[in-house]
Design a protein around this nucleic acid. Sequence first.
DNA 1: ATCCATGCAAAGCCTTTGCACCCGA
DNA 2: TCGGGTGCAAAGGCTTTGCATGGAT
Lengths: 142, 142
Amino acid sequence: MNTESHLRMTRQRQVILEELRRTCSHPGADEIYARVRRRLPRISLGTIYRNLEVLSATGEIQKIETGGSLKRFDGNISPHYHIRCLRCHKVVDAPVEVLPDIERLLDGKTDFTITGHRIEFLGLCPKCQAKAEAESRYLTEM
Amino acid sequence: MNTESHLRMTRQRQVILEELRRTCSHPGADEIYARVRRRLPRISLGTIYRNLEVLSATGEIQKIETGGSLKRFDGNISPHYHIRCLRCHKVVDAPVEVLPDIERLLDGKTDFTITGHRIEFLGLCPKCQAKAEAESRYLTEM
DNA sequence: ATCCATGCAAAGCCTTTGCACCCGA
DNA sequence: TCGGGTGCAAAGGCTTTGCATGGAT
């Protein structure tokens, strides 16, 4: 994070990074904890949080500040958008090209210095969609 | 929220709604609490949270699930985007038209049922921009 | 040897919830 | 009246932090 950082690549940090790159499920700290613990049973949750912070500060992973209260992390640092299920809060990558020019829409219209943007599509994942339909059928029958 | 809801407009709910519509600062529950308390000193934080939930469920206000851990609320329910300061977490409305067609980019490309989207521009507000410049000057001088 | 990182546990922040009483429709 | 709403306080979920010890460079 600093100009001259003296970060160490500890085993814990290494494994967290590996596990994060090995999944595409955009896990929260708790899930990362569970995964990493299979390989490093003595690791602590605090270490998970501290490293997620460090790794996202150095740009090795991406912090997805999505809607829900849970912070999620992504081992894929290439710019991309997400789709979030409004019901189960699952997050998947959006199969859409990024829109680099979108930030120009703000040119001369704000006194903020714009450095980036995020797009999140909202909807229902297939499973939740099915559940929602079942429920509405149930309601109409009554 | 339900098909047949029997919601009451209590004084508390009324005042929360009014205060939310009177500001454009996208306040969190704590700030709303402070504002409302000036008019209803005996109101409880729990009531604030419960009503923010009810009001956003009925669509009378908007819950802004922005990056930070704090949930923010917006009395302006017309669709619009936001700009968030990465440093002080302030949120302002983005002076940009909404892009209704953007969701079509996903047509046939996902098995999610898309119902909406959010765009959040990220950057630095003028104040934080100034601070950041001062800091970088300080660092280069060394 | 240095000093960043870890494990553990306590504390913190924001939010939700149980319960008895209250009040709007 | 009566079922939703309120105040209060306790509990909850997730995250951060203090401290002594450990380990990467």
